[in-house]
């Protein structure tokens, strides 16, 4: 290798490496809605930082990724709000200053101190929420029927129902149909849910993940998705205005996700800055309309930045009523969680 060639190579390496040297890096363990460039780019530009995202599904999978990583590998983490305590107890989340968060601007129900604050320390902040209820095509289904869960197993819609493939919200919904509050859903109560769950399964055409559920509803493969909600239909609303969702009289479930700073983050100040951006009105508006799935922002001030159409799709004006009628996800202990999963497996393989 000639000296000149070697010098050129070194120069090239420096040029290639220069963006990394100029920018800070923030590593985020997230759900798919945080991968939307429309959400990340304003923060990256404002702070001259590159946000590296890795998607995960399921709290255990997220914790497994953290287990396999070195301290400092991850800066922020999105987590199911009902699992914040579990992740914090495992020492994976660092306390964040409560006064640095605009929770005074939040919908009061979404502050969720019982989930995000442990022993007086704030470990995460709610960023987005929505409902697991019933999505449907209003041109093929009588919307009045969807106000009562009993219609699902009445025989009228046999073979036209899809079930969202996540046992927590669907078992929660089946429980509500039987008059069991999500807070009372334990291993004992599960026995009473087996029969209605199997009846729902018998009436259904498929049990599918987010994309497959959306595809099935959009193509008419199914007319109803149990466990759906705005997160399922909103991204399809422009092309399929017939798709709708409702909370039946028995109630619905409220899902919510939180974001926190990972314990041992390499750049905790930047991590907190990112959390603050996500819960700011600008971050909240972008997150609410993420290309992966939509959801209501926890921060009410995001409403000023959302279009009238977007607010209509999210049912902004109905939130007080919806929040009053929806219950929080079940928070099962380990034994109940296992029993739920076994029942779900049995249902899938019945």
């Amino acid at each position: 290798m000639t000296r000149r060639f070697s010098t050129n190579l070194t120069a090239l390496a420096l040029v290639l490496a220069s963006p990394a040297l100029a920018e800070d890096q923030l590593n985020a363990l997230v759900w798919c809605d945080h991968t939307d460039p429309a959400l990340l780019e304003p923060f990256e530009k404002a702070n001259n930082v590159k946000v590296n995202v890795k998607e995960y599904e399921g709290t255990a999978a997220g914790m497994a990724i953290l287990d396999q990583s070195a301290p400092g590998d991850w800066d922020v983490m999105v987590v199911d709000s009902v699992d914040v305590a579990r992740v914090a107890a495992a020492g994976r989340l660092a306390p964040i200053p409560a006064e640095a968060l605009p929770t005074a601007d939040f919908f009061p129900e979404l502050v969720m101190a019982a989930q995000n604050v442990i022993d007086g320390k704030t470990y995460a902040v709610t960023e987005k929420y929505g409902y697991n209820t019933i999505s449907f095509d209003k041109t093929k289904v009588d919307p009045a029927d969807m106000e009562d869960m009993a219609a699902l197993t009445s025989g009228k819609y046999d073979g036209k129902i899809g079930i969202y493939d996540y046992y927590l919200p669907v078992l929660g919904l089946v429980g509500l149909g039987q008059g069991v509050a999500t807070a009372d859903l334990n291993a004992g109560a599960l026995a009473g849910l087996k029969e209605p769950l199997m009846a729902l399964r018998k009436a259904s055409r498929q049990v599918s993940d987010v994309v497959s559920s959306q595809t099935a509803l959009a193509t008419g493969e199914v007319d109803i998705v149990v466990g759906g909600g705005e997160w399922l239909t909103a991204v399809l609303a422009a092309d399929n205005p017939n798709l709708d969702w409702t909370i039946p009289k028995q109630g619905g479930l409220r899902w919510s996700q939180s974001i926190g700073v990972v314990e041992g983050a390499a750049n905790p100040d930047l991590a907190l800055k990112f959390v603050q951006y996500i819960v700011s009105p600008e971050g909240q508006a972008a997150l609410a309309q993420s290309s992966c799935y939509w959801g209501m922002p926890a921060n009410m001030k995001a409403g000023d930045l959302l279009s009238a159409e977007a607010k209509a799709t999210l049912r902004w004006d109905q939130q007080p009523d919806y929040l009053a009628r929806a219950q929080l996800y079940p928070i099962p202990d380990a034994a109940t969680d296992t029993a739920m999963q076994d029942l779900w497996t049995e249902m899938l393989n019945q």
Binding site: G58, T59, A60, M63, T345
Partner: peptide
């Protein structure tokens, strides 16, 4: 079934 064990339960 393997994936079902991994997701939330972490079994």
């Amino acid at each position: 079934l393997i994936m079902l064990q991994m997701g939330r339960g972490g079994n």
